[in-house]
Simulated scan of single mutants.
Amino acid sequence: MKIAILAGTRPEVVKMAPVRAALAATPGLEPVWISTEQQGALNAQALETFGITPDIRLDPPSPERTLGGRFAQIMDRLDDVLGRLAPQLVLVQGDTSTTAAGAMAGFARRIPIGHVEAGLRTFDLDQPFPEEGWRCVVGQLADLHFAPTEAAVRNLLRGGVSQHRIHMTGNTGIDAVRLSGARVSPVPLTDGRRLVLVTVHRRENWGPELEQVLAALILLRDRVSDIEIVFAAHANPALRGRVDAALKDKDRIRIVEPLDYLGFLSHLKSATLVLSDSGGVQEEGPVLGVPVLVLRETTERAEAVEAGVARLIGTRTEDVVEAATQLLTDEPERMQMVRAVSPFGDGFAAGRIADVISGWSPAKPLGGEQIRAAV
Rank of each mutant, 00 (worst) to 15 (best):
Val230Tyr: 03
Phe231Thr: 00
Phe231Trp: 07
His234Arg: 06
His234Gly: 12
His234Cys: 12
His234Phe: 03
His234Trp: 06
Ala235Val: 14
Asn236Lys: 08
Leu239Gly: 10
Arg240Ile: 10
Gly241Gln: 13
Gly241Glu: 13
Gly241Tyr: 09
Arg242Val: 11
Arg242Leu: 11
Val243Thr: 03
Leu247His: 07
Asp249Ser: 15
Ile253Asp: 06
Glu257Gly: 01
Glu257Cys: 00
Pro258Cys: 03
Pro258Glu: 05
Leu262Lys: 02
Leu262His: 13
Gly263Asn: 02
Gly263Cys: 06
Gly263Ala: 07
Gly263Trp: 00
Leu265Cys: 02
Leu265Tyr: 04
Leu265Gly: 02
Ser266Met: 08
Lys269Trp: 02
Lys269Pro: 01
Ala271Asn: 03
Leu273Cys: 06
Val274Pro: 01
Val274Ser: 01
Ser276Thr: 14
Ser278Glu: 06
Gly279Asp: 09
Gly279His: 08
Gly279Glu: 09
Val281Tyr: 07
Glu284Tyr: 09
Val287Ala: 12
Gly289Lys: 12
Val290Asn: 07
Pro291Arg: 03
Pro291Ile: 09
Val292Ile: 12
Val292Trp: 00
Val294Arg: 05
Glu297Asn: 13
Glu297Leu: 01
Thr298His: 10
Thr299Trp: 01
Glu300Gly: 02
Arg301Tyr: 07
Arg301Asp: 06
Arg301Met: 11
Arg301Glu: 08
Ala302Gly: 11
Glu303Leu: 02
Glu303Pro: 01
Glu303Met: 05
Ala304Trp: 05
Val305Tyr: 02
Glu306Arg: 14
Ala307Lys: 14
Ala307Thr: 13
Ala310Ile: 00
Ala310Gly: 12
Ala310Asp: 08
Ile313Lys: 04
Ile313Ser: 01
Gly314Pro: 08
Thr315Pro: 10
Thr315His: 13
Thr315Ala: 10
Thr317Glu: 15
Val320Asp: 13
Val321Met: 10
Val321Glu: 07
Ala323Leu: 10
Ala324Tyr: 01
Ala324Met: 03
Gln326Lys: 11
Gln326Ser: 13
Leu327Lys: 00
Leu328Pro: 05
Asp330Asn: 14
Glu331Ser: 13
Pro332Trp: 04
Met335Thr: 11
Gln336His: 10
Met337Tyr: 05
Arg339Leu: 13
Arg339Cys: 01
Ala340Asp: 09
Pro343Phe: 09
Phe344Ala: 00
Asp346Gln: 13
Asp346Met: 03
Gly347Trp: 05
Phe348Thr: 14
Ala349Trp: 08
Ala349Pro: 11
Ala350Glu: 01
Arg352Leu: 07
Asp355Ile: 06
Asp355Cys: 03
Val356Arg: 04
Ile357Arg: 07
Ser358Met: 08
Ser358Gln: 15
Gly359Asn: 15
